[in-house]
Design a protein around this nucleic acid. Structure first.
Lengths: 189, 189
DNA sequence: GTTGGAGTTCAAGGCGGCTTGAACTATAGG
DNA sequence: CCTATAGTTCAAGCCGCCTTGAACTCCAAC
């Protein structure tokens, strides 16, 4: 065993290098931020960084997760299409491979979730508004403020939709980045 | 007492009308979605809908919160500038008033939080990247993938910044909506 | 048929964040 | 100075989400 630098890998096969863990955790944070589970992001990041299909057991080891957790996380990721199961060739265990199309997938999932949420809110506000309108006992001023709130919700909704659209354009650019092309990773701007 | 329709207020002073609770909860959901506490949104919504300054005790009653909770929630809201404390005139308790500039305030807080988060992530990825570059044992392919990930983070960062900027423009439009002007609440578009 | 590894499912437990409620401070009035 | 009310602070409890680990299913090899 050579000198122990912080990033010195133990064996060449599966180095638990500090830098790798760092990157993996960074992805985990991002994914968590977007409303998914932290470990979903970590699993995907591990698979993506390794570039090759890994068996569930490896994931379990590298990320120190339980067998059950890995199973559930992989099921989710597979369901979203960001990880694919590579059937056992011969007789070994299944292996799992990261898709480079994550961005598209994640973007779609997020967009759907967001859309549903916004729609719910607007529906609730509309309902409140119609109740307030039917009820003659509601002071004029309050009804006005409620109307303003509903109007704001509508505007924000429009803004979000606009954002999603433009973001979708950007996503087109982003998608290519992770793919294994040969051009430089940074298209400069 | 008249017939009891679902939205019939008990007394004219403080009707716990169903429609009001609905609207308040809707705002609470939105606020929670943006990473704040649900009850922070509910308190602001109550104050905004009522249009007048309310004492802490009323908030406590209307939203069925404890005295301590109301105190802390109001402190936060005051700190962000979306609620202002109206000093006791004479000798009564303090009263609290909703600012109509919420949108601006909330937008600023969110933008700051987001910016800090994104910066953190990029910093972590950069650190991982430089470690991987120093470490000769890291396979070429893995380094490439890590670079791509960092590049993606940078692109997404740019996208977010762009969004924040355009959103800021929209916010200019939104801000006016809640104010007590006399024009129609909906500028139609 | 049986043995063993891979993978799934789910109840129990752990963990973190929010709320409560009581103790505490501050301020005005008696 | 004493009392009462408004408001603040914080430890303890609660609640919901996530993970664990064990039981179970499936399948291939023997």
């Amino acid at each position: 065993m050579a000198a122990v630098s912080p990033s010195a890998p133990g064996a060449e096969g599966s180095p638990p290098g500090t830098w790798e863990a760092m990157a993996i955790d960074a992805v985990g944070s991002v994914i968590e931020f977007w409303g998914f589970k932290r470990n979903q992001g970590r699993v995907w990041a591990l698979l993506y960084l390794r570039g090759e299909a890994l068996p569930a057991a490896s994931i379990e080891q590298e990320l120190t997760l339980s067998k059950g957790a890995v199973s559930m996380l992989l099921r989710d990721l597979e369901h979203w299409g960001v990880v694919s199961r590579v059937p056992r060739k011969g007789a070994g265990p299944n292996r799992y491979l990261a898709s480079t199309d994550v961005v598209r997938m994640v973007a779609r999932v997020i967009a759907e979730r967001e859309a549903g949420f916004v729609a719910d809110i607007r529906r609730q506000l509309e309902a409140a508004l119609s109740m307030a309108r039917q009820d003659a006992a509601v002071p004029e001023a309050q009804r006005t403020r409620l109307e303003r709130m509903a109007a704001l919700a509508e505007q924000v909704d429009r803004g979000l939709q606009l954002f999603v659209q433009t973001a979708r354009l950007d996503v087109g650019t982003w998608i290519g980045i992770l793919r294994e092309g040969r051009g430089p990773a940074r298209p400069a701007r």
